[in-house]
Design a protein around this nucleic acid. Structure first.
Length: 648
DNA sequence: TACGGCGGCGCG
DNA sequence: AAAGCGCGCCGCCGTA
């Protein structure tokens, strides 16, 4: 027995088992079912199910459950059940099993309930794997250990040996997962229904169950489709920059070794630390965090290198800045992306729905949400993401999404007006905060652009225009910084101004926008009062540390309290947009697939002929993704082209 | 040889 | 580093 509870016997089915037909009939007649697969491995595009299991509460006999383990050869007998849209499947980590079933030739059409996602809405600080959820939600503990077998023999050999040599153990193992899942589904559903929340649409979202079933549940399938599609990669382009990147990196590393006068591994912070602070005797700028041991050492990060260049004019530090850039580019992107390509030249990320505490997605294996931006990346990695022949990429961006949501949430009329007037928000803010004419700010940016493009003489960029540009930059940094709870010290460092100037700037900004100040204060107050920070659709984040006696712990919770409503609401908006794009049937209408989400940006692949039509629909759907209009319209800029770079 | 912690850094 | 939110991956290094 694997769980520490009494349970019905696990049943075993193969294609030849006489009871299979009756089982199929019962399953078809039971609309709520937990499902799990045992597979050949963890690669979701390549591996496939060897066994699978189901568990459900028997119709007409409440409290009586069945749990069955089936060999994969039984799957075809259930094909019509998988196709039925009017049923519900519960999983742990749903997308993975959906991929496995798809690899075996079956696409589930019913509702998808991922218990990991359900759990993440209630217990965002905990893990969402089956073992932990079963322990903490159900009080069940796992007794058998299969890890060693999987590890030493590999999943395929291990599972197939079990079928031959110890079938009961295989049946236990496999069917218990499904059994745990159906109990988790039932318990978590009750907990979600009993979890009140606060949203802008109380008639639609008043409990976490509303949030789950109306947004997260359909979202899972949307993400599954994105993962499945993958993004096509121009491997020739990556190969073409691999040489130059490597050459440049080697060159700068050789130069560093020459300057140091002995072999040094430029990737080793320890060796660099030794060189700068022992051999050269420089003063450290800052110390590292120290981690568990608490041992702090001099940092050798970007800030430090920049300071060593500034203060000591050190050529090694200067070269290290280049080395860092190139090493990151080469290892993480040029090589990393190539290594992730599948046989068709596409890369398939995992979009994690249960990781970010604010409700954002995360992307891993491969992370497609941190590909370098072309404006700072001289090797233009984004150029490597391309459509297949005769297709385009479409890239749609929410413009200033978080600022718009802040203006709405705070009901800051002057800021709202900037958006209603269709102005650039940072220029608008700079204009109001510093009393500069908006048109001058606009002209400054235009002239700056033209001077940089060589279309105008440098003398056109007057001191006044420089001041205008700087004002916009300062206000932009303040706006983002405030959202993260930044204080004057950090602002001063970022803007390279004095602490007092930074303090003055922030005060000026806040007193020009009193409603914004009040919004941040009241966000913190809400958490003090209720324990939770809320987003527009009612996602909650529990922040008990807001009452901590330790000021650093409490301050951190306060920063999170003021950030969650904005970052989390932005995540809500994009999530709704993705669901609506899916519902708009872009695939059938235009042959368009959603590929990637990068927080406020969506990427699609679309045939050339239908690109213009698809763009129009996508833009409309995204700008209109919420149940009702906000005080500020959401604006989406949309472009298309033959690479991620060109499409923006 | 594998793994986790850590520093460092890419993105929004 | 510091009162800057949310992520994931790389290489190094110490440990098993």
């Amino acid at each position: 027995m694997a769980w520490n509870i009494s349970m019905p016997d696990g049943e075993w089915f193969t294609r030849e088992t006489p009871g299979l037909e009756a089982l199929v009939r019962e399953v078809a007649d039971t609309p709520v079912m937990a499902i799990d697969t045992e597979t050949t491995g963890l690669n979701y595009m390549k591996d496939f199910p060897l066994y699978w299991s189901l568990s459900w509460e028997r119709k007409g006999t409440p409290g009586h459950f069945r749990r069955v383990c089936l060999r994969a050869d039984t799957l075809p007998a259930f094909a019509h059940v998988f196709k039925n849209p009017d049923r519900e499947w519960s999983f742990v980590n749903a997308k993975y099993d959906m991929h496995m079933l798809f690899n075996a030739g079956f696409e589930l059409k019913g509702k998808i309930l991922d218990t990991s996602v359900m759990h993440s809405l209630l217990y965002e600080e905990e893990r969402h794997d089956l073992d932990h959820m079963a322990t903490s939600v159900l009080g069940w503990t796992w007794k058998d250990d299969f890890k060693t077998g999987f590890k030493t023999e590999g999943p395929k050999a291990f599972l197939q040996r079990l079928e031959q040599e110890d079938l009961p153990r295989l049946v236990e193992y496999a069917s218990n997962d499904a059994y745990g899942t159906i109990f988790l589904r039932n318990k978590l559903k009750k907990e979600l229904e009993g979890a009140p929340t606060w949203s802008l649409y109380p008639e639609m979202f008043s409990t976490l169950w509303d949030l789950f079933i109306k947004t997260e549940s359909p979202f899972t399938r949307v993400l599954w489709k994105c993962e499945r599609a993958g993004a096509f990669v121009d491997v020739n382009y990556l190969k073409s920059i691999e040489g130059p990147v490597t050459e440049e990196l080697n060159k700068v590393e050789r130069e560093i070794v020459r300057l140091v006068g002995r072999p040094i591994n430029t990737n080793s912070r320890k060796q660099l630390m030794e060189y700068f602070f022992n051999q050269k005797g420089y003063q450290p700028l800052k110390m590292t965090k120290g981690g568990k041991s608490g041992i702090k050492e001099p940092a050798v990060d970007f800030d430090t290198l920049e300071y060593l260049v500034q203060k000591y004019n050190d050529p090694v530090a200067e070269n290290m800045l280049t080395q860092r850039d190139l090493a990151k580019l080469k290892g993480t992107y040029v090589e990393g992306i190539q290594n992730s390509r599948d046989a068709n030249g596409r890369v398939h990320t995992r979009f994690n729905q249960d990781v970010a505490r604010t409700g954002r997605l995360s992307s891993s294996d491969i992370n497609l949400q941190n590909i370098p931006r072309p404006d700072t990346d001289k090797f233009r990695i984004r150029r490597a993401f391309i459509p297949e022949e005769r297709n385009n990429l479409i890239v749609a961006d929410y413009e200033a999404l978080e600022m718009r949501l802040l203006a709405c949430a705070a009901m800051e009329q002057d800021m709202i007006q900037i958006f209603l007037d269709g102005k650039d928000i940072h220029m608008g803010n700079a204009s109001l905060v510093f009393g500069l004419p908006y048109d001058d700010l606009k002209a400054a940016k235009k002239v700056d652009g033209e001077v940089k493009a060589g279309k105008r003489p440098e003398s056109d960029m007057t001191d006044y225009y420089q001041r205008c540009l700087l004002a916009r930059q300062h206000v932009k940094t303040i706006g983002f910084g405030l959202n993260y709870g930044m204080k004057e010290n950090k602002l001063a460092r970022d803007l390279k101004i004095s602490k007092q100037e930074a303090l003055n700037l922030m005060e000026k900004y806040m007193s020009r926008y009193p409603a914004v100040r009040h919004f941040y204060d009241s966000s913190i107050e809400t958490v003090r009062r209720t324990g939770y920070a809320f987003t527009l659709l009612g996602r909650r984040r529990f922040l008990p540390e807001i009452l901590s006696n330790q000021s650093d712990v409490r301050w951190r919770a306060e920063r999170q309290a003021s950030n969650v409503p904005i970052q989390g609401t932005a995540a809500d908006v994009v999530k709704m947009a993705m669901i609506k794009c899916d519902e708009a049937n872009l695939l059938d209408e235009f042959g368009a697939h959603m590929l990637i989400q990068v927080h406020d940006e969506l990427m699609f692949e679309c045939p050339e002929e239908t690109t213009d039509q698809a763009k129009k629909v996508i833009q409309e759907v995204m700008e209109d993704s919420l149940p009702s209009k906000l005080a500020v319209p959401l604006k989406v800029s949309i472009g298309s082209g033959k690479s991620w770079m060109d499409a923006k």
